[in-house]
């Protein structure tokens, strides 16, 4: 680990000031500190922002505003989240371990970096995300957990978060602040596909701080779930995960939200599948066709071809379960 200075921000302005002097924001440290230990990240200064908002509050329009420093554990356990947005609670509990969730923050979870082992191997592997232009050893190397959608020649990494997959399905908003003011993004706009700049994970400007995540009111969300498929029963990143909410009336799909994890450089909102589902009869055939539509553009790597069929099956099973259709 490279030596660094450490400051604890007591309010937003102080945090932003520290950032303008080059400090990186530190949440629970469950990812950034690991990356610093591996020297993937070498920040000269850290600004601890866990003392900023830890509030979860109701919004005027019936949604929830979640402070960026709320821990993953607190969010998953929150009664309103459990009842009105069960997909989010389940997604969080499907990730990491209880100890890590107790430390990890909402803002930090959004900014997790990929778990590609070649990205982590500073001395021994080439990685365009770590060192632009160096090349990618994952493409012909270990890529079991890597992308099947939206990858580029430069990078095939996936975003590792479970929580973000649920947020993508829930149309969550991300509130940002910087020295030049505040702005709000859709969660699905926050992360970017790798293209030829895989070193850039999100659209955040330097020094921009995530202050809160907002969940809009949603009748649909109360009937939602998350399913994660991975290589052991717990404590593993997803091969495929599915966040979904569906509303069926008289056997027809009135509305649906669907997002996938473990498939791309960002939490993947399955808009193609959603389009093909709306207004259709709630049946296994419809669900499978929607999954096929979403995965039509999937490109397998040397080790992860199975994820295409796995994603289709998991999507179909999750929608069938939510819609009460027998598999």
């Amino acid at each position: 680990m490279t030596p660094f200075s450490f400051n604890r921000a007591t309010d937003r302005d102080q945090a932003l000031t520290l950032a303008t002097r080059g400090a990186r924001f530190l949440g629970g440290g469950t990812n950034l500190v690991d990356l610093m230990r591996e020297t993937v990240e070498r920040p000269a200064a850290l600004a601890d922002v866990t003392g900023l908002s830890r509030e979860i509050s109701e919004t005027p329009d019936g949604g929830l505003m979640i402070g960026a420093a709320v821990t993953n554990s607190a969010l998953a356990a929150h009664a309103a989240v459990r009842t009105r947005y069960p997909v989010l609670s389940r997604a969080i509990l499907a990730g990491a371990s209880a100890q890590i969730r107790n430390m990890a923050t909402v803002g930090g979870n959004l900014l997790q970096r990929t778990r590609c082992t070649h990205f982590y191997d500073v001395e021994g592997s080439r990685c365009n995300k770590r060192q632009p232009g160096q090349g990618c050893d994952a493409r012909g190397g270990f890529n079991r957990i890597h992308a099947i959608l939206g990858a580029s020649d430069a990078c095939v990494a996936t975003h590792p978060s479970d929580m973000c997959v649920a947020l993508a399905a829930l149309d969550a908003l991300v509130h940002l602040a910087s020295a030049s003011g505040t702005r709000t993004l859709s969660l699905t706009e926050l992360h970017r596909l790798p293209g030829d700049q895989p070193q850039i994970d999100t659209v955040l400007e330097p020094g921009e701080l995530i202050t809160a995540v907002e969940l809009p009111a949603s009748a649909l969300a109360a009937h939602s779930t998350y399913r994660k498929v991975r290589d052991r029963a717990s404590y593993a990143f997803s091969l495929i995960s599915v966040a979904a909410a569906i509303e069926v009336e008289d056997g027809r799909i009135e509305d649906v939200r669907l997002a996938l994890g473990g498939v791309a450089h960002k939490p993947w909102r399955a808009t193609r599948a959603e389009e093909s589902l709306r207004g259709q009869p709630a049946s296994l055939d419809t669900f499978r066709a929607a999954a096929e539509a979403e995965l039509a553009a999937a490109v397998p790597l040397s080790e992860n071809g199975f994820k295409i069929e796995l994603a289709k099956r998991t999507i179909t099973a999750v929608l069938a379960e939510l819609a009460g259709v027998d598999a």
């Binding site: 778990r115 191997d121 592997s125 012909g140 190397g141 270990f142 052991r232 029963a233």
Partner: peptide, 24 residues
């Protein structure tokens, strides 16, 4: 995970080298 191109072990950690967890 032994990379046959380089002879390098690519999962040298208990996060990536899976052993059974309690739930397994």
């Amino acid at each position: 995970q032994y990379d046959e191109r380089s002879g390098r072990i690519m999962n040298p950690s208990l996060a990536e080298y899976h052993v059974p967890v309690h739930m397994d």
